[in-house]
Design a protein around this nucleic acid. Structure first.
Lengths: 154, 154
DNA sequence: TTGGTTGCAAAATGTTTGCATGACC
DNA sequence: GGTCATGCAAACATTTTGCAACCAA
C-alpha cells in the first residue's frame, strides 16, 4: 500500500499497473503483491520465503521467481540492483521517481532516501565526462541504522 | 604506474606500500602488480587471467586469488565492490581518496570520476537521515563510453 | 487449442573451504 | 623449524536452463 494515489483495492492496483504482454498467472500476481506490500527492495530468497509464508499450500519454484522477476524487469515495471554491501541481487517495483537507499550493515534494513541528490549535480558529472553517454546511476549510502548504531559489531 | 609520486621502480613501490603482517609471497606480489598496473577495478576472473597471461609457466589457483584479495582487504590496502551493472565483485587497490566510476554497459570499461560529488552534499544526506550513522557510500554512473555510444546494442 | 508458464532437476556460475604439500621468515 | 600460504578438489550459494506437464487466453 505504498504507492497508491487514493485508497483502492489490490485488484484495482493490479488492474491498473499490470504490464501489457505479460500473462497474468497466480504466481506472478503473488510475486507482484509481495513486492508491492514491501517498502524496500527484496532478494529473490526473501521473495521466495514471503511467498511460501503467505501461501503455505501452494508450491513455488525458485526458477519461477527468477523467471518472473526477469519478465517484470523486461516489461519495465521492476528494477534489479546489486548493492555493494550484499552479495546477491535485490528487486523492487519501479517507482515513479527512482530511489536510493541507506543500507544498514548490520540488520540490512534499507531506508529510502527521500530525494535523489544526484539530480542536483548531474551537470557537474556531465562536465567531467563529456564523451560518456550517461543512462543511469546508482547511489548507496551505508552505515548503521538507529537500532544498530550502538552495537555495530556482529 | 598510476599512483607514483615520482619515478620509482615497482620494487620500491612494493617496499613502501606492502602491509604489515602480510607475508610477501610470489603470488601476492604478482596479484599486487596486476592491480597496481591497472587503472580500473578488476574482477577475480580478470586478475586470474592477467596472472596467467603474464606468467604462463607458473600455476595459479582461483582460491589463492580470492584468499589474497581477502587478505589485502583485511590489511586495508584493497577495496572490494559490487557494481549494479555487473554480477561479480571487482577489486582495486585503495586510493588516497576514494573513487567512483562511470561504467560502460557494453564494453565494461570503468572510467574514474575525478571528484567525489557526494562530498558536496554529504550534509544534505545527513539532514534527511538524522538517525542513521553513515560510514560510507557508493556511487556508480552507467551508460555508454565514447567508443560504444554509437552502437549501444549488444 | 495452443503457446506461454510452471515445477522439478540438473547445470552453470562465482566464491569459499578442507586438507596435504610446500614456501617464507 | 614452525607457521602460514598454496594448489587441488570438493562444497557451497545463487542463478540459469532443459524438459514434460499444465494453465490462461
Amino acid at each position: 500500500m505504498s504507492n497508491k494515489i487514493h485508497a483502492c483495492s489490490f485488484d484495482e492496483i493490479i488492474e491498473r499497473n499490470w504490464p501489457e504482454g505479460v500473462k497474468k498467472t497466480r504466481q506472478r500476481v503473488d510475486i507482484y503483491r509481495v513486492l508491492h506490500d514491501c517498502d524496500q527492495p527484496l532478494s529473490a530468497a526473501e521473495i521466495f520465503s514471503a511467498l511460501n509464508k503467505e501461501h503455505p499450500k501452494e508450491g513455488y519454484a525458485f526458477s519461477t521467481v527468477y523467471r518472473n522477476l526477469l519478465a517484470f524487469e523486461k516489461a519495465g515495471i521492476l528494477v534489479k540492483s546489486v548493492l555493494s554491501t550484499e552479495d546477491n541481487a535485490v528487486y523492487e517495483l519501479k517507482q515513479a521517481t527512482h530511489r536510493h537507499y541507506a543500507v544498514c550493515l548490520k540488520c540490512h534494513t534499507k531506508i529510502p532516501i527521500k530525494t535523489c541528490p544526484l539530480h542536483d549535480i548531474a551537470e557537474h558529472i556531465t562536465e567531467s565526462l563529456p564523451d560518456f553517454q550517461i543512462t543511469g546511476h546508482q547511489l548507496e549510502i551505508y552505515g548503521y541504522c538507529d537500532k544498530c548504531k550502538n552495537t555495530p559489531a556482529q
